[in-house]
Nucleic acid binder design. Structure first.
Lengths: 278, 278
DNA sequence: CGTCGTATTGAGTCAAGTCAATTCCCGTGG
DNA sequence: CCACGGGAATTGACTTGACTCAATACGACG
């Protein structure tokens, strides 16, 4: 299990510093205890370097850079005035969790940057990554319904999120049609993602799956921030070794070019070819 | 890619008789043309026995047997009076579609009995079953958002549904909090199902997957209406042959007892054991 | 009794899993 | 500055579960 990248990413550290350490001790939602340890396959010791999250300040929704794509997209001036509870901006270090499965649903999170994985744990101790969230996506929607979290949400890359208290959502949801529509749309989106995961990443040969995964993560410049092989396996439903083998081979073939650790420049065309092929 | 699961649809006819043939010619939503034909692998001819559906009458929501679990669960007397458009009860024969991917979203469907599969087609022509719906579930929720259908919904067993026009949903959704809540809950449910599909049915050995599939379909008496091996493959992401082999073996081992074609009595304990094991 | 469509089986092959090293990276502490 | 240690990533050798291709068996129907 991936407990390694905690201390790893230099980036993690940096970004943490960016955050003004105004840690709130009262009800910090981002408990920084260890990821639930699951029967480690190769006696890898349980680690909990897990740095947790840092409060960064109160969010300024109206001026938010990703406002258009975010949950509060079409709220009006008037709507905003209904918000009384604070919306915190929070920085989460790689490996730290936004929330854990089964937690009391206190809030939901809008991802502003970075990458978050939603994990479900298998009875046998394994884990399966059920979705990947990026800027504009929402984590923990179930909180708006008062349902317990169904996944554990863990930052893969350094993440900046807005924490929206459940009460805010519920109030706004009652008062304004806008938000209600947004919520429905979010759920819709969640289902689409889930289906895409099943169909695109759960079907075909290991090579094809890896290729498709890269295609979903790639940016306009054909660059891609990737992540640990262990996680790749958990996303694609293949073993860590197979994931590693495939990635390594793609590097050798020149389809991928690793500029720095887990940062790739990709040959999009080649990937697309692989995505269909065997 | 395991392209064993190239769908065929069979067994349409029979139950069509059950339906009182009050077919409405004006705007029958259940077009009975063939499912989009996808590159059949083994020269299997395209079939279109596909009989379509029959109108059965206007639904009486207030007295509905599955009212508690259904979409209209907590509507009040007053709410019902808001409904002007008719809600039709419709019988769908096995193999017939409720709607097709990409269709204009005219309505959504509450499943009252039977089994419905939501199918997505792969670029290479294969298909993948993304969810299975049973009594109380809702198909085509996206219609409430005005989005085009993302799947094709096909009856696996004879199905009885209520067709709720999009306009009804939208009006009610605006007028009453109840329904709005219900809609959110439905979406939530859909996501949970999707995740369960990924985690339970997309992970582990073929035996384990088949076992889990039976466990999700089994009733209180440990009986189970099963379906074609082709579909089993499309649900589990394995080939038809593998599906067949596994089922056959379980029969030999006495874990399954086939009382009549595709009707099984199951050894729940044995299945559970298999579901974890390799 | 043939036909058609599905289910089952068999034989052979290969992709992916398993088990077990080995190699890399990096950060740490002498 | 360098040896050391821990955690990933790779790689190798071997096994095997699942896929392929192909034949056969079965059950409903006209």
């Amino acid at each position: 299990m991936p407990c390694g990248w905690i201390g790893r990413l230099g980036a993690a550290a940096e970004n943490c510093d960016t955050a003004r350490h105004d840690h709130r001790d009262d009800h910090d939602p981002l408990r920084s205890f260890a990821v639930p340890s699951r029967a480690p396959r190769r006696g890898c010791g349980v680690k909990k370097t897990d740095i947790g999250a840092a409060w960064r300040g109160l969010a300024n929704c109206k001026g938010c850079g990703i406002r258009e794509t975010a949950l509060f997209a079409d709220l009006t001036e008037g709507d905003f005035s209904l918000i009384h509870l604070p919306i915190d901006e929070i920085v989460v270090a790689p490996g730290a969790a936004l929330y854990h499965v089964g937690d009391e649903p206190q809030a939901l999170y809008t991802v502003r940057s970075g990458l978050v994985k939603l994990v479900q744990y298998l009875p046998n101790g394994g884990q399966r990554i059920v979705r990947l969230l990026r800027a504009g996506d929402t984590a923990g929607l179930e909180a708006a319904l008062g349902e317990p979290y169904r996944h554990t949400a863990i930052a893969v890359h350094p993440v900046l999120t807005c924490r929206i208290p459940r009460a805010v959502i519920q109030r706004l949801s009652e008062e304004t049609q806008h938000l209600h529509q947004q919520l429905l749309r979010r759920w819709h989106q969640a289902v689409e993602r889930a289906d895409a995961f099943l169909v695109e990443l759960g079907t075909g040969s290991a090579r094809a799956r890896v290729a498709r995964l890269f295609l979903t993560l790639i940016d306009e410049q054909d660059d891609c921030d990737f992540f640990g092989r262990e996680d790749v396996g958990a996303v694609l439903g293949i073993t860590t070794e197979t994931a590693s083998r495939v990635v390594a081979e793609l590097k050798r073939q020149g389809v991928l070019d690793e500029s720095r650790p887990n940062r790739f420049h990709c040959d999009r065309a080649a990937l697309r070819a692989l995505a269909d092929g065997p």
